[in-house]
Nucleic acid binder design. Structure first.
Lengths: 157, 157
DNA sequence: ATACAATACAGATAAATATTCTTTTTATAT
DNA sequence: ATATAAAAAGAATATTTATCTGTATTGTAT
């Protein structure tokens, strides 16, 4: 049977989502426990795949990537082989950080992170519009971002 | 003058973006260096704010949050105080992981992570539609996700 | 209710790692 | 070429991780 998460596991995940570079001791203190069971739980969560990986979160703006753009795309054809090809092509573009197949007024929603408006235009002209069967394409240029996180609220689980 | 990143810093950021739970020794090996300069560079990148934090990336689906939805929202009024209030309200909803002010056919683009279609509907009915001055609202329900990462390609910097 | 088994916990310890300090090398400007 | 500054290497120390052992708790069957 599948391993299921208890309250402590969820608390632990919340803690690690916010900051994964804490010592087991400090995490244990927050949970009111000692290190060994906490350590074992973390290892279990990693092994079972609840924790996929640990990563550094960078400041994109500081690095020079100042612009986030969302692009809704409707395709004119919907054959399976074409959809697969489309996703494959899209995934090779380094500007694209997300690519979702969606239902609604578009077929795909892309999220792009680029230097600036110029880099965005270059992407559109020299990459996106070269793809065949493009239908309606609509960009939403981010002006400011109120919230942007991977952190999932687990209190509702 | 502002600290600027050299090739080694960028390589280091790429490595830490992919996996931050490596020993300094292993990272140093990948860079062909010894641990101490690598350690110092990491501390510098943290201190200067290029690295914002370290986090655990969870498997949302496994945890029970199976649905991602994007919602484009146009408002009917655009007074400053109202926009501020709108963002504030939105940020309090735990379902919302991203909230961007955008230009284009909408004023805001939200990204939601919820259990399922039912939880999505509950959000719309009992949270979103209670906000005043809502105009056009359009949801894009994710069917499948081809790519979803924070990892920024730094080779182009 | 009681005994038994299974699981989780606390505390202690050895091994590994992070961190600091000193010395050496490399790069740069005069 | 030489002096200076910056970065890297090497070595020593402080922390932390990971493991082990014994104890407590929880669940289950009688």
């Amino acid at each position: 049977m599948a391993y299921s998460l208890d309250k402590i596991d969820l608390q632990l995940l919340e803690i690690l989502q916010k900051d994964s570079n804490q010592t087991t001791k400090r995490i244990a203190e927050q949970l009111g426990m000692t290190t060994s069971p906490v350590f074992e739980r973390i290892k279990k969560l990693e092994k079972e795949g609840y924790i996929k990986k640990y990563v550094a979160v960078l400041d994109n703006k500081k690095i020079g990537l100042k612009l986030t753009v969302f692009i809704g795309i409707a395709l004119q054809g919907h054959t399976r082989s074409y959809l697969e090809k489309f996703v494959k092509e899209i995934n090779n573009f380094p500007e694209i950080v997300e690519c979702h197949r969606v239902s609604g007024n578009f077929d795909y929603l892309l999220k792009l992170v680029v230097e600036d408006i110029e880099a965005y235009e270059t992407f559109i002209i020299s990459k996106l519009t070269l793809l065949p069967y493009l239908g309606n394409v609509q960009s939403l240029i981010t002006l400011s971002t109120g919230k942007e996180t991977n952190e999932i609220d687990l209190s509702r689980i």
